[in-house]
Amino acid sequence: MAHIDYYFTTLSPYAYLAGERLEEIADRHGASITYRPLDIMQLFPRTGGQAPKDRHPSRRAYRDQELPRQARKLEMALNLQPAHWPTNAAPSSYAIIAAQEAGGGDMGKLVHSILRACWLEERDIAEDEVIRDCLQAAGFDPALADSGLLSGAETYAANLERAVAANVFGAPFYVVDTGQSFWGQDRLGDLDLHLAGKL
C-alpha cells in the first residue's frame, strides 16, 4: 500500500484549491496519508524561494491571475485578498497535528475547513474559536485546540526539517514512498496516475 507525506501550510491558497482531492485519490488507490503542516516562511529561504511579498512584481502579478483562473477551473470560490492573511499558521497547524495523533475524525475535512475559513469565509485561522469550530465540524474534539501545544510545536519544527530533507520547496507538496514527489494542486492528476501505475 502506498503512503503519501502531505506537506502544506494552512496559509496556502493552492492547498485550499486542492480541496479534498488528495483524500479521494488516496481512497481510490488504498494509500495512506500523513499530514505534515510546516512553517512555509522558514521553508522558502532554505530552499531558494521567497515569501509572496518579497517576490518580483512580475511573479506577484502572475499569481494574481493564476489563482482566480485555477479557482474558476475548479468551480471553487476564492477571496484573493482575505481579511486575515497572512496570519499565524502555528495554532491551526498544532491542532491538525493533535487531531492526527488523536484520531477519530476526518483529517481531509479538517484541513480543508481551516483553509476554507481563511480563503473563503474571512475568518482568522489563528483564533481558537475558529480552530475549535473546524475541529468539531470534522468530527474531532474541539478541546484539541488547547492540548499538546509543546508536542505540536516540536512536530511542526520536525516537519520543516523533514521537508527540507525530502527536497520539498513549496506547498502543497506530495511525497510518495515510491520516491516520486508532486508539487502543487495542479499535479494531483499526475499523483493519481502514478498511484495507478500509469506514470
Score class of each variant (00 low, 15 high):
A2D: 13
I4M: 06
T10Y: 02
L11E: 08
P13A: 04
P13L: 09
A15Q: 03
A15L: 09
A18P: 00
E20A: 12
R21L: 15
R21Y: 09
A26H: 00
H29I: 01
G30V: 05
I33F: 06
R36M: 14
L38P: 08
L38Q: 09
D39P: 10
I40L: 15
M41Y: 15
Q42E: 13
P45N: 12
R46T: 01
T47P: 12
G48F: 11
G49W: 11
K53V: 01
D54C: 01
D54L: 10
R55T: 01
R55C: 08
P57G: 05
P57F: 02
Y62W: 14
R63D: 11
R63G: 05
D64P: 00
Q65T: 12
E66H: 09
L67A: 06
Q70N: 14
R72P: 03
L74W: 07
L80G: 14
H84T: 02
P86Q: 10
P86F: 06
T87Y: 03
A90C: 02
S92M: 04
S92L: 07
S93Y: 10
G104R: 09
G108W: 01
G108P: 09
V111E: 02
S113Y: 00
A117Q: 10
C118K: 00
I125R: 11
A126W: 06
E127C: 12
I131T: 10
C134Y: 00
L135T: 04
A138L: 06
F140A: 04
P142K: 08
A143Y: 00
L144F: 08
S147L: 15
L150Q: 12
S151A: 15
T155I: 15
Y156R: 13
L160G: 09
R162I: 01
A166P: 07
V168D: 08
Y174S: 02
V176E: 13
D177R: 03
T178D: 08
T178M: 05
T178I: 05
G179K: 05
F182H: 08
W183R: 00
G184H: 11
Q185A: 13
Q185G: 13
L188E: 08
D192I: 01
H194T: 04
L195I: 06
G197Y: 11
